[in-house]
Design a protein around this nucleic acid. Sequence first.
DNA 1: GTCTTAATGGTTGTACGCAATCTTTAAGGG
DNA 2: CCCTTAAAGATTGCGTACAACCATTAAGAC
Lengths: 237, 237
Amino acid sequence: MSTPQKSPERNKTQSRTVKVQVALRQAIIEQRLAPGIRLPEDTIGESFGTSRTIAREALQRLAVEGLVELQPNRGAFVANPSLDEGRDVFVVRQGLERMVVRHLAGNLSTQQIATLEHMLQQEELAAAQNDAEAIRLAGEFHLKLVEMTGNQLLIRYLTETISRCSLVLAMYGRPHSVDCGIEEHRQIIEALIAGDVERTSSLMEHHLDEVAGRALLEPRKTESLQDVLSSFADLLR
Amino acid sequence: MSTPQKSPERNKTQSRTVKVQVALRQAIIEQRLAPGIRLPEDTIGESFGTSRTIAREALQRLAVEGLVELQPNRGAFVANPSLDEGRDVFVVRQGLERMVVRHLAGNLSTQQIATLEHMLQQEELAAAQNDAEAIRLAGEFHLKLVEMTGNQLLIRYLTETISRCSLVLAMYGRPHSVDCGIEEHRQIIEALIAGDVERTSSLMEHHLDEVAGRALLEPRKTESLQDVLSSFADLLR
DNA sequence: GTCTTAATGGTTGTACGCAATCTTTAAGGG
DNA sequence: CCCTTAAAGATTGCGTACAACCATTAAGAC
């Protein structure tokens, strides 16, 4: 049945579409592609050495992920979420993460605990020196947690939501607010092991409030025209 | 910048793809297309009087919705979730609905309250006579609730999840267990108006436990080989 | 008779081309 | 000078054709 003499490597990855999709996603999350910018199918196709068909498919998928906006007969644009939409995304993330800890608390295997503590160590290592790496690891921690639930749907939703959070933070967050507090991660692990659902939930809630609130709510809140102009008006005195 | 003088009418609906998508979704949820059945692009295209391109696109989207499974180089199939996967979907739904009531409790406008009570009346009307209509209305109730949150992401996720629940129920549920208890819906509305988050949450949790548990967990639970065989063994005495 | 291997049929993966639509630019009238 | 209207340009929407791949069946060897 199986044909092991095939390519020794993996399934060769699901063809070009996915490759383009991941590449674009990375570019968007890292803000190499600014929010609101146009994404013509032609250009993308040429860039990746493929035809419009592939580019189009990748864009469609990214659209359902919420990273690009698709306007009928007008084309694709990098998503440009408003602050309100951004808050919505964080609200959903909080709820999803709450589901994660609810299912994990008290149910961690020793293997899983070891994995988490290992990740924590890596986070601490990276915290002092490598900014980009630290941010990446902080995200991985949350992804690892949800993967441990084994709930495929939950994994998909939270993965998607987290990447959207990254986009929102990139737009409205300050340059590099250390997204996650490592100490908070440690406390969460401890509470999970202890099996205290309520405590873990509130810890996670607090943790995400920190992330969202610190970086998102404070800074360029609404930035209404009046506010901007009044701050300039002061200079006229 | 904005061009309000555009077409006065609606956006004319987003082209054929969505139409095919909607039609297929309906067919799958209503079990007109049995789980596991093949969905060749050609056939679908011909059925809807369009080309493979459209069919393919619709299938892709339904795949991310979880209603069809896409096997590389092999084609599309109507999703055939295992009982475990089905349970996962219900777990996620519970979590999402919990988010809904958390945001709605105590924040309903009089307009919204009126809408909900109107829906309740319709449910009661349909309950006695029209089965299919009753089931549809029961689903609408939950959809209406999430729409009232105004959180687009939450709306998308829960809509998707609810349709997947329908598929699961169609597969593993008994013929037509009345999916939702109307009385339970009434209690939920009351608790929402009262603004009692905890009570609403537990009501909703209980409500969905009823739906899932009654129709899904009891009946063909695991059905391990031993169980089946032992029940046959009795006949040999 | 069974296993291996080749050939065939069918379906997906991808590229490309034409038509439809939107945007922009240019021209004309008030 | 501005606004309205027409034409040109560019991009998406969609169909179709060919190539790649998988599954099945047929043929051959042991």
